[in-house]
């Protein structure tokens, strides 16, 4: 195996290990111990929190900021696609099969091109808009840039990886950097996002706020 693939693999293992420790800590700390009498259903609240409550029509952060929201969704889809492709490319037979399908590589590259552009748009928005600049710190820029570069180099890998050692080296080193940095800064929200949705569902489900109550027939 090439050295840069080993580096990327080690970084990925480190990332999984550290994030696993974060996950274990959450499990160890446990869910809130609420002594009040439950009014609703936690299970239904958590289910709602992860489904309908995430719909754009339910959130001002989505429907009042549609371009940013849409860019964010596409950007995150690109990240998950890139993560999936990284796993596939680490398996030599799958890698060979993938690069034999030129049309698929072209399609994936096109998708990643869009998500990469979204990443850069969000990055520059953070720089250009005053309130975003004031809200941000170094970690925000590094995180945004790291994930955007991850997608950009996955895109390049889809185009050139089969025949370019230079692209291969760069791609795996960018992946290694991302995996190394992920547990350090705000990219940890990869895990904490799901935990936050759980806690929100727990809170609102317990109090019968979520799922929203149906209108009673008042007549």
């Amino acid at each position: 195996m090439d050295w840069y693939r080993i580096v990327a693999l080690c970084a990925a293992c480190y990332c999984v290990l550290v994030m696993g420790l974060h996950f274990l800590r959450l499990i160890r700390l446990g869910k809130p111990k609420d002594l009040s009498r439950k009014s609703g259903s936690v299970a239904k609240g958590v289910a709602y929190s992860n489904t309908a409550a995430m719909m754009p029509n339910q959130k001002e952060s989505a429907y009042m900021h549609l371009p940013t929201y849409a860019a964010g969704i596409v950007f995150h889809l690109g990240i998950f696609l890139s993560l999936l492709l990284f796993i596939l490319l680490m398996i030599p037979p799958v890698e060979a099969w993938l690069f034999s399908l030129e049309w698929l590589c072209a399609l994936l590259a096109a998708c990643l091109c869009v998500s990469t552009v979204c990443g850069f748009v969000l990055f520059f928005k953070r720089i250009i808009k005053k309130e975003m600049r004031e809200l941000s710190h170094l970690d925000d820029f590094v995180s945004n840039l790291s994930t955007t570069m991850f997608q950009l180099f996955t895109l390049l890998a889809m185009c050139y990886l089969g025949g370019s050692r230079c692209v291969s080296t760069a791609y795996y080193l960018v992946c290694a950097w991302l995996f190394f940095y992920l547990p350090v800064g705000k990219l940890r929200h990869l895990l904490y996002y799901f935990a936050a949705r759980y806690h929100l569902g727990f809170f609102y489900g317990w109090r019968n706020v979520w799922p929203p109550q149906k209108k009673e027939n008042h007549e």
């Binding site: 809130p32 952060s61 309130e131 936050a196």
Partner: peptide, 23 residues
């Protein structure tokens, strides 16, 4: 010394997207 996972979760979850301002 958090009592449960709620505090740690919410302190690690914000991504500074800034979209909360209008609410």
């Amino acid at each position: 010394m958090p009592a449960d996972s709620k505090l740690v979760t919410h302190l690690n979850a914000c991504v500074h997207c800034g979209l909360c301002g209008t609410s």
